[in-house]
Computed example of a mutant assay.
Amino acid sequence: MSDDLAGRLVAVLDLDGVRDKAGLMDRAARALALPDWFGRNWDALADSLADPSVWPQEAAERGLLLVVRGWRAFAEGRPEEWRTAEDVFAEAADRTPALAVALILGGSS
């Protein structure tokens, strides 16, 4: 692991079994401990990922590594939504140096 990722809080976004955008948003809200007012739409996810003030305190202090696993079935079943999710992850990571997103290519276990 490179030094710029060392020490970050790791949050796992497990998409195993997720079949739609609503499921992805629910899992993201849980994985990131997002506030109740999280809007569960793409713009709200992008804003939440790019705003360390809504992350868990430890992540806001140390940085956040979001590990996305179990995503392939969602990507195959909802390719347009998955492209949007990828764009959201990439844009948020570009906007926020404290955030890194990793897509796990192996199984979800």
Results as ranks from 00 to 15, higher is better:
Phe38His: 09
Thr84Val: 14
Val18Tyr: 00
Leu15Ala: 07
Asp16Pro: 00
Pro79Trp: 11
Gly23Gln: 01
Pro52Met: 07
Gly70Ile: 08
Asp51Met: 00
Leu32Tyr: 01
Phe89Asn: 05
Trp82Lys: 03
Arg95Asp: 14
Arg19Ile: 05
Ala92Pro: 07
Met25Thr: 04
Arg40Asn: 08
Trp82Cys: 12
Arg69Pro: 02
Pro56Asn: 07
Leu24Tyr: 00
Thr84Ala: 14
Ala29Thr: 04
Asp43Leu: 10
Met1Tyr: 08
Gly70Asn: 09
Ala33Ser: 15
Met1Lys: 08
Pro35Arg: 02
Ala22Tyr: 06
Asp4Phe: 12
Gly39Phe: 04
Val88Gln: 04
Asp20Ser: 09
Asp26Lys: 13
Glu81Phe: 06
Leu66Thr: 03
Arg83Trp: 10
Ala60Pro: 04
Ser48Lys: 00
Leu45Gln: 03
Phe38Val: 01
Glu58Pro: 01
Gln57Arg: 14
Val54Asn: 10
Arg83Phe: 10
Ala93Arg: 08
Arg69Glu: 11
Glu61Trp: 00
Gly77Pro: 11
Leu34Val: 01
Leu64Tyr: 01
Val54His: 03
Asp87Pro: 00
Arg19Asp: 13
Leu32Ile: 02
Met25Cys: 08
Asp26Phe: 05
Ala100Asn: 11
Arg62His: 15
Asp36Val: 03
Ala50Asn: 04
Val12Asp: 13
Ala46Lys: 12
Asp87Cys: 11
Trp42Cys: 10
Asp47Ile: 10
Val10His: 04
Gly17Asn: 07
Ser108Ile: 05
Ala100Lys: 09
Gly107Ser: 11
Gly63Leu: 00
Glu81Arg: 09
Asp14Pro: 03
Gly107Cys: 09
Val54Phe: 01
Asp14Glu: 06
Met25Tyr: 07
Ala93Tyr: 06
Phe89Lys: 06
Ala98Tyr: 00
Val67Gly: 03
Phe38Thr: 02
Val67Asn: 08
Trp71Thr: 01
Ala85Trp: 08
Thr96Asn: 15
Asp51Arg: 03
Ile104Glu: 15
Asp87Arg: 15
Arg62Glu: 14
Leu99Ser: 05
Phe89Arg: 05
Val67Ser: 13
Ala98Met: 11
Asp20Lys: 01
Asp87Ala: 15
